[in-house]
Design a protein around this nucleic acid. Sequence first.
DNA 1: CAGGGACGTTAGCGCTCGTTAACCTGATGG
DNA 2: CCATCAGGTTAACGAGCGCTAACGTCCCTG
Lengths: 201, 201
Amino acid sequence: MATRTDAPTRREQILKEAARLFAERGFHGVGVDEIGAAVGISGPGLYRHFAGKDAMLAELLVGISGQLLTGAKRRLAEADGAARPEAVLDSLIEGHIDFALDDRPLITLHDRELDRLRDSDRKLVRQLQRQYVELWVEVVREVHPGLAEPAARSAVHSVFGLLNSTPHLGRPGSLPGRAATAALLHRMARGAFAAASPAAG
Amino acid sequence: MATRTDAPTRREQILKEAARLFAERGFHGVGVDEIGAAVGISGPGLYRHFAGKDAMLAELLVGISGQLLTGAKRRLAEADGAARPEAVLDSLIEGHIDFALDDRPLITLHDRELDRLRDSDRKLVRQLQRQYVELWVEVVREVHPGLAEPAARSAVHSVFGLLNSTPHLGRPGSLPGRAATAALLHRMARGAFAAASPAAG
DNA sequence: CAGGGACGTTAGCGCTCGTTAACCTGATGG
DNA sequence: CCATCAGGTTAACGAGCGCTAACGTCCCTG
């Protein structure tokens, strides 16, 4: 992946600030004037870049879901064939943790403001999310064959809850460091999956 | 605990419906007219029972936090003295799971709408939440002495995220049954804590 | 039976918000 | 050198919101 070095476009600035504000105070809790102020322009100026407030949220949520799914598919393809299923699962976990630690506001939005979308956008996001979940379910069941499919699906959702708890972990600074936190979350996710099988215990 | 058999008061009806609506569409996304309609009266009629919309949210959040903390303290006292620390932790987990499964809308509100409260109410809720977390941290560290305090605190928050994932688990009906779900969550929580210690590999 | 409180109702006020309209400005390219 | 256009500005509109005011009705009690 080529790392971005050029300056972010205005659209990107707006999306980033909007994500932060939406995560902090909720979609309805943030006014367009505030979003504008956050990027140095004033309210209606945003409409040169987006069709409306809803469009910003839609682009954010679709982007998140797509990014997660794309990354997961890539990791699956990279580790394809010879790799132990454990390694594939570790790669998925690692990817999700990176996302949860680096883009906390987006993680918050992801399961909080979905209902504010137009029907078509919401269906799209839901479909991307479902694909992402099913991809995890398959890998988890390869690593833990004793796990029935419904239980595996519940386990995946629960581990997402665990990994997405990063916004509650205090500001980055009270944490024991990013690497240590990532390692802790990784161990816990693996432990949770391992304990999900009724046989183990 | 004496089980309620008498009819719920109007206040309780309102709180229950408000919790559901707030969880579904967010605090700002629900109008007082809707809350009123949900209990069969119309908008302004609510003001016979609550000082305002904010007051409903405050009462809900303070109630949740207090209930969680009170229940945890009771469980700790009941199992006091001779009990193995593992049994105490299991009791805490069980209590939290009961809450997460039986009061899903409240669980959703609990970490979503806290910022909408007046300063004094928010401080109160935060204090109750902190006490609840610290109580868990102590018990977890008794069960897993290898866990440093900051890591234990992060682990507790993460397990809360795991347990509070119940709203994402699909409507109760697609689930393999309440008991099975509770057992799955319980196993995963224990497994996550066990895997949190760096020593365990 | 009078009186009052509990619990509703509808009408409407005042404010905020998303959005549009109308206008301005600086860079760009034929 | 002028036309165009991207990207801003402020003013204002219309809708929806929380909340209050004013009023009605039932039921309980002295």
